[in-house]
Design a protein around this nucleic acid. Structure first.
Lengths: 169, 169
DNA sequence: CTTGGTGCAAACATTTTGCAGCACA
DNA sequence: TGTGCTGCAAAATGTTTGCACCAAG
């Protein structure tokens, strides 16, 4: 089965980022990202609602990975009441336009992260503490593409997870 | 939360493979693997039951990845009736003694694979067909350890997933 | 105004668990 | 012969869906 499902609708094609890349100030990317989302929605005849705006804004404020539940809590904490159903529906939407990506490393819960900016697709998972860091590993891309080329395949993306403990030796 | 849970009991420590490595003939590893399991169980005061033996035997006959449901079906097809609960319980047991490992790349279902022999921890996932290949990528280990050393961490393992489509360019 | 969106609660699918009887060591 | 194991069915969990009402465009 293809990875793309996104409720009934067609996958929204990834929208190229226009500007505001590589900045450290997360506030700086709020406007463009929101614009990207609006455009992606409009292209599909979907609506930009306050709930969707609030969800994206709240996601942007997260540092790295987050879970659906955390997102829901953060929304509540900000005084917004958005239902669980809407959070899940919006996450799918954000995934299908490549603003957010799902990260699987835990059977019990889906994790997500912003797919934009300096977020990486390598995770360092501390198996003792449960802590997770994300990072970018450009060296991996060369290795990946070399493997794919050798097989007549084209890489669309990759995820690396490294399970670690503190080195007390 | 630590990755290790394995129902009530302590994690069984990984047992070094004694022989029968790198062979192509899956039949050849049935005996040793089963012996490994027996030993691991005995060390924990657990019992080697016919259900557990049948589950391990059936897993060994799988080529690569499998799901709990497939395992259940395969058992039924062989005329063994093992309950779903026992399958899940035994999978956890096999995981905790490193005979089997869980592979997450699909939110809906856990996949598993034998952790022994030539099975790799890199997955090539064909996003169009759903097909999945596993392979070994020794180059990754160097990269991984280098990253960990630089941070005072010790790598315990890793998983790489590469998402691909056929290259029609 | 029309089409899609929201919240709620019920539905779902996979995995886990409580319990009574069974069987390995 | 006792502790652990099994099967069953019920529970638990994260996610999805049906529906009636609401709101964006």
């Amino acid at each position: 089965m293809p990875l793309e499902s996104s409720m009934g609708l067609e996958p929204i094609k990834p929208v190229p980022t226009d500007g505001a890349h590589g900045h450290d100030d997360s506030l700086a990317i709020i406007e463009p990202l929101c614009a990207v989302f609006r455009r992606a929605l409009k292209e599909e005849g979907l609506k930009y609602t306050p709930e969707r705006a609030r969800i994206l804004d709240t996601i942007i404020e997260f540092d790295g990975l987050f879970e659906a539940d955390q997102l829901l809590d953060a929304l509540k904490a900000k005084g917004y009441s958005v239902s669980k159903a809407t959070v899940y529906r919006t996450l799918k939407l954000l995934e299908s336009c490549s603003i957010v990506q799902q990260v699987l490393f835990d059977r019990d819960q889906s994790h997500y992260q912003l797919a934009f900016g300096k977020q990486g697709n390598t995770l360092i998972i501390h198996v003792d503490t449960g802590e997770v860091e994300t990072l970018e590993l450009p060296e991996l891309i060369a290795l990946r593409d070399q493997i794919c080329n050798a097989r007549g395949l084209k890489a669309q993306g990759h995820k690396l997870q490294i399970f670690v403990i503190a080195d007390d030796s």
